[in-house]
Structure formats: C-alpha cells, structure tokens
C-alpha cells in the first residue's frame, strides 16, 4: 500500500510497492536522459518554457545562460529519485521505504512535476478541464499521470505538516 507519512522524528517517509518503485526509477532514468541529451524534444517547451513570451531573442539569451544549470538541476532530482526508488537489497515483494530529508523531498516534488509535465505533453493535456482525446495506447498513461499527481500532492501535504509552526 502506497503511503506518505510523517515519522515521530518529523521526517517524511514514503512507502512504495515494488512495482511502483521500479516504475518511478524507470521514469526518472528516462527524464534524466531526456534533459541531459542534447536532442530537442517537444516537452522542452514545458520543462524549459520561454523566459520572455514576446521576445525570442531575449529567451534564447536566457537559455544560453540558464539552460545547462536548469537541466542539471532536473537531472540531479531525477538521480535522487532513482537512487531512492531503487531501494537497495530488498527481499522480493517487500515494500520500499524511503525516508526523505528536506533536500530529497524537494527533489522528489520537482521531479514528479517534471515527469507530469512530460506526460502531459505526450498526452496532449493543454487545459485544466482535461478535454483531450487519446488512442488506447496513450490512454493507459492517464492513471499513471493521475497517480503521480496524487503522490506529489501527498508529499506537499506531508512536508507542509512538518514545517507548520516551525
């Protein structure tokens, strides 16, 4: 059973089923490759949106200075998730328990955002109402997209509860 809890010590603890952990590690690896390879991708408009909406030259200049650092930040977050979700030496079928410090939980939250940004591009999600049409193969990604959103919201709530009154 997937769970996000706050431990007695005030740390956020994530429990994942082995399949979920494997899938998250797999997605993280794909995102890491996507942002570090020098190949342009349609999802880049969402991962690295233009800094100046009406000024392509200024946006290109911004990218020249900022893109590498942003990509490295996203790749680093993906690696944090990959190593956490890989879970070490666990017995077959054991749930993966990951305790996250502040740095790691931000890596998880920003990474889950990046995964959902890429999935949204693949799924053609452009508006809040979710009005999009999919072929059967793509439709199988919708529950994943929703589950990632649920996980991210749970992490935000958990981190919020540990910082409340701090």
């Amino acid at each position: 059973m997937t769970a996000v809890e706050v431990t007695d010590a005030g740390r956020v603890q994530l429990t994942l089923e082995p399949d979920e952990a494997r899938m998250l590690a797999d997605l993280a690896e794909q995102i890491e490759q996507l942002v570090t390879e020098a190949v342009d991708d349609p999802a880049f408009d969402r991962l690295f949106p233009p800094a100046y909406r009406d000024d392509a030259a200024a946006s290109a200049e911004f990218d020249r200075f900022e893109r590498a650092g942003l990509a490295e930040g996203k790749a680093g977050a993906a690696r944090t998730v990959m190593s956490g979700a890989s879970g070490g030496d666990l017995a077959e079928g054991e749930p993966v328990r990951i305790e996250l410090d502040d740095h790691e939980i931000w890596a998880w939250m920003t990474h889950l955002t990046d995964v959902r940004l890429v999935l949204a591009e693949r799924l053609g999600i452009d508006a809040d109402d979710g009005g999009f049409e999919l072929d059967d193969e793509m439709a199988t990604l919708v529950p994943l997209y929703d589950w990632l959103g649920w996980l991210q919201a749970a992490l935000v709530d958990a981190l919020e509860s540990t910082t409340e009154g701090a």
Binding site: L47, P50, A51, F62, G73, K74
Partner: peptide, 21 residues
C-alpha cells in the same frame, strides 16, 4: 531572471516582462 530561472526549476511556467508592456 533569477526568479524565473528558479520557477522553471520548480516546474512552474514563468516569464519576465516589463511593467509597462
């Protein structure tokens, strides 16, 4: 530009514009 870069790091859609634009 620092703020927008940070927002992009968080995965938010942010941009810079002049106040009179």
């Amino acid at each position: 530009e620092r703020h927008v870069s940070a927002m992009h790091g968080y995965g938010l859609r942010a941009s810079i514009t002049r106040a009179d634009a």
